[in-house]
C-alpha cells in the first residue's frame, strides 16, 4: 500500500514544484475544500452524535432545552432495575443465539451445494441472495400471513409433514424463533455469498494434496476446508452477531411495533426506540443504547478473542 501511496504524492509535489510557488500554496486550499463536505457530514452526523451519545444518558434531557438537569447515573440505574430491560436483553441474547449458529451452518451448507462455476449454480445463487435486497417491512407482511395459525402456509407445511401446528408469531415461545426464521430467509443469502467468496479463495493445491494423500471427501471437508475457511466463518459469525444484536425492522414489522406477544419479541433496540421515540424519554433511551453498545462490545470482543485463538490465518 505504501508503494502505491508514494506515486500520487510524488505527482502532487512535482506538479506543485513546476508551475512555481503560487500553485503549491493553492493546491492545499482546493484539497481542503474538496474534503470539507464529507468531513462536515461525518462530523455532524457521526462524530458529534457519538460524542453526545456518551453524554445524554447522564442528563434528564428535554427537547425544548428547558428543564434539562444533570442526572448522574440515575438513567442507567433505572434501566438496570427495570425488569423489561432485562427481558429485552435476554430476548436480544436469545435472538443472537438462535441466529448465529443457524446462519453459520445454513450458509456453509448452502454454499457447499451451490459452489460451482456453471450457469445453473449462478442462477441459484442469485435466487438465494434475492431476499437480501428486498425491503423488510414489505416482505415481512407476507410472512405474517404465512405464519397465520389458522390459514397460513407454515402450519400447512407442518401438517403435511405430520407435525402439529404452531401459533408462530402469536405464541410467546415461538414468536422469537419465527422472527429468526424470517430473518434467515431475508439475510442468509448474504452469508452464503461470503462463504462462497471464502471457498473460492482457498488454495486448490492443498485440497488436491489431501485427496492424493487419500483423504476422503468428509475428511477433506473437516480437516482441510473448514480450518482454511475459519477466518471467513469467524467473519460470518461476527456479522450475524452484530445483525442479531441490532435487529429492529423485522421485529417491528412482525409484531406491529409492539414487541409482543407480551414482551416475547421486545429486543433492546425496540425497547430503546419505544422509550426514546414513543415516550420521548430521550436520556433514558440513550442510556439504554449505551448499555446495548457495551453488550455488543463485550460479545464482539469475546468473538475476536476466540478468532485470534482458533482461526487459521494464512
Amino acid at each position: 500500500m505504501t508503494a502505491t501511496l508514494l506515486e500520487p504524492v510524488e505527482v502532487a509535489t512535482r506538479r506543485g514544484a513546476e508551475p512555481g510557488r503560487r500553485r503549491r500554496q493553492r493546491s492545499p486550499l482546493v484539497s481542503v475544500l474538496m474534503v470539507a463536505p464529507a468531513v462536515l457530514f461525518l462530523a455532524l452526523f457521526v462524530f458529534l452524535p457519538a460524542a453526545m451519545a456518551l453524554g445524554i444518558g447522564f442528563f434528564h434531557y428535554h427537547l425544548l432545552g428547558v428543564g434539562t438537569t444533570f442526572a448522574g447515573l440515575t438513567n442507567f440505574k433505572d434501566a438496570l432495575s427495570y425488569p423489561i430491560f432485562w427481558r429485552a436483553a435476554e430476548n436480544t441474547a436469545l435472538f443472537a443465539l438462535l441466529m448465529v449458529p443457524t446462519t453459520l451452518v445454513g450458509s456453509v451448507a448452502i454454499a457447499l451445494v451451490l459452489n460451482g462455476t456453471s450457469r445453473g449454480f449462478g442462477l441459484l445463487r442469485s435466487i438465494v441472495l434475492l431476499p437480501y435486497v428486498t425491503p423488510v417491512v414489505a416482505t415481512a407482511i407476507g410472512w405474517i400471513w404465512i405464519f397465520n395459525p389458522q390459514y397460513g402456509v407454515a402450519n400447512y407445511v407442518l401438517h403435511g409433514l405430520g407435525l402439529p401446528g404452531s401459533q408462530w408469531l402469536l405464541s410467546p415461545t415461538m414468536a422469537l424463533p419465527s422472527v429468526a426464521i424470517y430473518t434467515l430467509w431475508h439475510g442468509l443469502g448474504f452469508d452464503v455469498v461470503l462463504v462462497l467468496a471464502g471457498l473460492a479463495s482457498l488454495p486448490r493445491d492443498v485440497m488436491e494434496a489431501a485427496s492424493i494423500d487419500g483423504a476422503g471427501r468428509w475428511q477433506r471437508f473437516y480437516k482441510v476446508q473448514m480450518p482454511l475457511l475459519s477466518p471467513t466463518l469467524f467473519f460470518v459469525a461476527f456479522v450475524s452477531t452484530l445483525g442479531a444484536l441490532q435487529s429492529f425492522s423485522q421485529i417491528y414489522a412482525l409484531s406491529s411495533g409492539q414487541g409482543g406477544p407480551g414482551f416475547a419479541t421486545t429486543t433492546l433496540l425496540l425497547l430503546i426506540y419505544q422509550t426514546a421515540f414513543s415516550y420521548f424519554h430521550f436520556s433514558y433511551g440513550a442510556a439504554m443504547a449505551l448499555l446495548l453498545v457495551v453488550m455488543i462490545l463485550v460479545v464482539v470482543g469475546f468473538q475476536r478473542w476466540l478468532a485470534r485463538r482458533w482461526a487459521f490465518y494464512q
Binding site: A50, A53, G285, A286, I296
Partner: peptide, 13 residues
C-alpha cells in the same frame, strides 16, 4: 461507531 447509539443524538441534532 455503533448505529444504535446515534439514534437519539441524531434526532436531537
Amino acid at each position: 461507531v455503533p448505529g444504535e447509539s446515534l439514534l437519539v443524538p441524531n434526532y436531537l441534532i
